[in-house]
Amino acid sequence: MDPSAPADFLLSVEGLTVSFDGFKAVNDLSFYVDENEIRVIIGPNGAGKTTVLDLICGRTRPTEGSIRFKGQELTGMREHEIVHAGVGRKFQNPSIYEDLTVFENLELSFPRGRNVFGALFFRRDAEVRDRVEEVAEMIFLKDHLDTEAAILSHGQKQWLEIGMLLIQSPKLLMLDEPVAGMSIAERVKTAELLNTIIRNQSVIVIEHDMKFVEDIAHRVTVLHQGKVLSEGTMDRVKHDPKVVEVYLGH
């Protein structure tokens, strides 16, 4: 462990490496995420950004290194165990139940209904309703609870999927290009949403939209060839000559 790293980070990634047929997609990577922080990971295509999320959520096993979340080692755990530990992941394309309403999508994601037994004896009590309405308001869909998910706009579908994660109250939320394909107005509202979320959660975002990154990032980690090229505030990173040369210059 890096002796200069405080022990109370929410997420500590240290010496993380994963090789695919000898190619190191992530190479001796270390970074630390605080409670209530929005960390944005940027970098050119092939830099290893999505692989990092795959490693944290247990989709991919590291070749070496450590991922500690709230002091618990994640590298030996299965995906569902990592979800139960409090890590939520949203992929690039929204995976919602299109033929169900917004309310039903959120209700299905409520933790008690997650297993077959829980779903069979699941009742729509006041606790569930209150939580669904609370999350729906946060994701700007309070007036669409009875709307079938299929007819939502692309941006609203993205918000719904974020809501489906939020209702499970994860401590760390990981979002892969959440504003891709959104209108400018939707991007502004998504920034507002993320800045609300971090009162109770931390968020890791992979993003290419630099304006959006400026609106949300507390800290930015720039990856290049599976390693950290630069890290710090958006202002510091965008003026780093190495970043300009490798990434922003293109």
Score class of each variant (00 low, 15 high):
residue 111 P to M: 11
residue 112 R to M: 08
residue 52 V to A: 09
residue 67 I to T: 07
residue 149 A to K: 09
residue 70 K to V: 04
residue 190 T to F: 05
residue 64 E to H: 11
residue 86 G to V: 13
residue 78 R to Q: 14
residue 231 E to W: 02
residue 150 A to D: 10
residue 186 E to N: 08
residue 249 G to W: 05
residue 135 V to R: 12
residue 173 L to W: 01
residue 42 I to A: 03
residue 51 T to D: 02
residue 26 V to H: 10
residue 42 I to S: 04
residue 207 E to Y: 02
residue 123 R to V: 15
residue 19 S to Q: 14
residue 28 D to P: 00
residue 187 R to P: 03
residue 74 L to R: 06
residue 213 V to W: 01
residue 41 I to R: 02
residue 25 A to P: 02
residue 231 E to K: 06
residue 202 S to L: 07
residue 190 T to I: 00
residue 98 E to A: 14
residue 122 F to R: 10
residue 82 I to M: 06
residue 38 I to H: 02
residue 72 Q to L: 11
residue 22 G to K: 00
residue 141 L to Q: 13
residue 122 F to W: 09
residue 4 S to M: 14
residue 141 L to F: 12
residue 217 A to G: 01
residue 139 I to K: 14
residue 200 N to T: 14
residue 237 V to Y: 05
residue 158 Q to K: 15
residue 146 D to F: 00
residue 191 A to N: 00
residue 83 V to Q: 03
residue 218 H to N: 13
residue 140 F to V: 04
residue 169 S to K: 14
residue 29 L to M: 13
residue 99 D to W: 05
residue 1 M to V: 10
residue 244 V to P: 03
residue 106 L to E: 08
residue 79 E to I: 15
residue 2 D to N: 15
residue 2 D to M: 07
residue 182 M to G: 07
residue 163 G to S: 12
residue 204 I to K: 05
residue 44 P to E: 09
residue 46 G to Q: 08
residue 159 W to N: 11
residue 200 N to G: 11
residue 228 V to N: 01
residue 164 M to S: 11
residue 28 D to Q: 09
residue 154 H to G: 07
residue 177 E to M: 07
residue 36 N to Y: 03
residue 2 D to Y: 06
residue 154 H to K: 03
residue 208 H to W: 02
residue 116 V to H: 05
residue 122 F to V: 08
residue 77 M to I: 06
residue 39 R to I: 03
residue 191 A to P: 06
residue 220 V to S: 05
residue 222 V to D: 01
residue 189 K to L: 13
residue 200 N to W: 01
residue 26 V to N: 10
residue 160 L to Q: 08
residue 1 M to C: 07
residue 29 L to N: 07
residue 239 H to E: 12
residue 48 G to F: 00
residue 97 Y to L: 14
residue 242 K to D: 13
residue 185 A to L: 10
residue 169 S to R: 15
residue 13 V to W: 01
residue 24 K to T: 11
residue 109 S to V: 08
residue 178 P to D: 03
residue 221 T to G: 05
residue 19 S to P: 03
residue 7 A to H: 10
residue 124 R to I: 05
residue 230 S to I: 10
residue 165 L to T: 09
residue 186 E to S: 08
residue 128 V to G: 11
residue 147 T to V: 04
residue 91 F to Q: 06
residue 59 R to H: 08
residue 4 S to Q: 15
residue 116 V to C: 01
residue 243 V to Y: 04
residue 99 D to V: 07
residue 37 E to C: 00
residue 199 R to V: 00
residue 55 L to V: 12
residue 246 V to N: 09
residue 183 S to H: 03
residue 52 V to L: 04
residue 146 D to A: 13
residue 224 H to A: 12
residue 163 G to F: 00
residue 153 S to C: 12
residue 157 K to E: 01
residue 55 L to P: 10
residue 116 V to I: 15
residue 63 T to G: 11
residue 56 I to P: 00
residue 144 H to A: 15
residue 226 G to H: 04
residue 78 R to P: 03
residue 97 Y to G: 05
residue 149 A to Q: 08
residue 105 N to M: 07
residue 149 A to N: 09
residue 16 L to W: 05
residue 9 F to L: 02
residue 94 P to G: 09
residue 140 F to W: 10
residue 93 N to W: 02
residue 155 G to C: 02
residue 105 N to W: 07
residue 232 G to S: 05
residue 185 A to Q: 15
residue 202 S to Q: 03
residue 198 I to V: 15
residue 152 L to Q: 04
residue 124 R to D: 11
residue 198 I to C: 03
residue 11 L to G: 12
residue 26 V to C: 07
residue 154 H to Q: 11
residue 239 H to M: 06
residue 58 G to K: 11
residue 67 I to S: 09
residue 36 N to A: 10
